[in-house]
Amino acid sequence: MSTQNMFRLGLFALIIGALLLGPYWASRGTMRLLIEVFYFLALAQIWNLLAGYSGLISVGQQAFVGLGGYLIFSLAMFAGVPVLVGLPLAGLLTALIAWPTAFVAFRLSGPYFAIGTWVIAEVYRLVFAQIPALGGGSGISLPANIVKAMASSRSARESMTYWIALGIMLAVVLGIWALMRSRVGLSLSAMRDDDEAAISVGVETRKLKFLIYIVTAGITGLIGALIFLQKLRVTPDAAFSVNEWSVLVIFIVVIGGIGTLEGPILGIILFFVLREFLADLGSWYMVILGTVSVVIILVEPKGLWGLIQRWKPVSLFPVTRRSDG
């Protein structure tokens, strides 16, 4: 094993180890912040897989965050499904709903696809606002008996949420890493680079697009389910928020560096640092966020990770395939 690999492995082990022990050293506030970091990073990496690695630019992923949120509430409240079972089930059902949705979305391509996905998300928001059993437009809180059934105490519930969020985030990051090193990842990159040339070498790009759209929708639904399980309350505006689940997520990926695994990690750090210092500024916070992203894109379209690579070509997650590929 090369020293570089040893270093990489050591670094990963250290960070993952420290995060795993989070509930033993972090305060309640820090844990809540970290949970948010984990699910935003997971959402960002998933959007990155869709847009950065596969070339499918969606601004409608909030459709699946919201579906996940509403599904886990429905499963727990109406079907009595335990939340730990409900989480993966909500993800699976979201993927199932994304399947027919994909047929609508893929009628369009390029910028039209992007707008189309947003419209679809709005449709879902309006539909869920019409369901009285789910509180209509004002949403619904998770009943106390279900919250209590999740864990023996509040801190136990928070630790559980923390570990699940961490687990999902790690699985997403390492999963995308493994995927991009595989033959499927190669096909995705080819499809993003040149769709027609990819078809010509035998890549079934249409099937691949459907597959990646549905799989990312399912994972996004799972993350959404977790988000609202933590918030304990879901409303149509929060669940299907384009600002929260698309704009901020895109911001994180783009300022960090789209099409890389390292980029969103840098992006999430910058995002949360900015938020901690600027959140009190109200609307100015969003103005500053927008300005920062414009400046970064002008200086380096490949984001912060691109800036670092310009200075020193390093890689935390090398994806180059071995020749025996």
């Binding site: 096909s187 040339a197 180059t320």
Partner: peptide, 30 residues
């Protein structure tokens, strides 16, 4: 492509984000 007709297209149309070897490996998709 799978039936056995392969093309080196006009303008080459290599995959720009990929290395030489990755471009070659994609040829073996079928």
């Amino acid at each position: 492509a799978k039936l056995g007709i392969a093309m080196s297209p006009e303008g080459r149309r290599l995959f720009p984000s990929l290395s030489v070897r990755e471009n070659l490996l994609l040829g073996a998709t079928v």
